[in-house]
Amino acid sequence: MIRIKAVVFDFDGTISTLRAGWEDIMIPLMKDSITGGVQLSKEQEAQLHQQILTYIDQSTGIQTIYQMRWLAETVQNAGWNQEILDEWEYKAEYNRRLLERVKERVDRLEIGDLRAENFLIQGAAEFVKTLHEIGFELYMASGTDHPDVVREAEVLGVKQYFKEIVGAPVGKAECSKEKVLRDLMEEKGLAGNEVAVIGDGKVEILLGKEVGGLALGLASDEEKRTGINPVKERRLQAAGADWISGDFLNLNEWLEKLGV
């Protein structure tokens, strides 16, 4: 008898690499918004850069709107930029910049100009298909906007394996990962030890541990799509992950961790 009944997956960086490099878009957006074009000293610039890097490292995996809320507060507190936007305006600009890159990839995947396997963590498609065939209920929870997650999961060929896909609700500040876990506990009556969470960010690992579930870390190298990313590994260890891998090529080991 399988002890784990439901598996909750993060999407970006755990299954998909379509949004790999999002940090390279968020960092300059934050820096430009905070400084407002004011020329900083080298020391101020270094401090600000480190502040942004530290925040992004701490917040990876949460809904984008919360990161933009931090940005709005930081712009106000810094006092350099007199044009202070609200969190939704910052999010809109971030999404605009990010989707310039992502939309092209998704469009080309839809017409067959690109291959889905080149944007999946290695072994991910076979892993979710295997879990589905075994009988696990699979859920996807992401901090990315819901319509985008659904479309991206579809073009990558994994959508059909998930019982439910939950992204960030458009126009609302609500944690999709917390919602999925709460629904599994409250509405479906699952106990914590019947749920496993798999992700590359500390948010889902912490939430998984909080409900008493099995928290499996995926310290993915999104460029190579295989192997351990030591930065993510340290982040996941600090969050209390029960086990960490870099990809899903070690299928039997993953199945063993899930009690198969």
Rank of each mutant, 00 (worst) to 15 (best):
H49Y: 12
H49D: 13
H49I: 03
H49A: 13
I52G: 02
I52L: 04
Y55A: 03
I56H: 07
D57F: 12
T60C: 00
I62A: 00
Q63A: 15
Q63P: 08
T64F: 14
T64P: 14
I65Q: 08
I65C: 04
I65G: 04
Y66R: 14
Q67W: 03
M68N: 02
W70D: 01
W70A: 04
E73N: 05
T74K: 14
T74E: 12
V75R: 00
Q76N: 11
N77R: 15
G79Y: 01
W80Y: 14
Q82L: 13
Q82I: 08
E83W: 06
E87A: 13
W88Y: 05
E89D: 07
E89Y: 02
E89K: 03
A92K: 14
N95L: 13
N95K: 06
L98Y: 09
L98P: 12
K103S: 13
E104P: 02
V106A: 04
D107C: 00
D107A: 10
I111S: 11
G112A: 06
G112Q: 05
R115Q: 15
A116L: 04
A116F: 09
A116D: 09
A116H: 08
F119R: 06
G123K: 09
G123M: 07
E126G: 12
E126T: 15
F127N: 07
F127R: 03
F127T: 05
V128I: 05
K129C: 13
K129D: 11
K129T: 11
G135D: 05
G135W: 04
G135T: 05
F136W: 08
E137A: 10
L138I: 14
L138V: 13
Y139I: 07
M140V: 15
A141Q: 02
A141G: 11
S142V: 02
S142L: 02
D145H: 11
P147M: 03
P147F: 04
D148M: 15
R151D: 03
E152T: 09
G157F: 00
Q160H: 11
Q160V: 06
Y161C: 11
F162S: 04
F162E: 01
F162L: 05
K163H: 07
E164D: 10
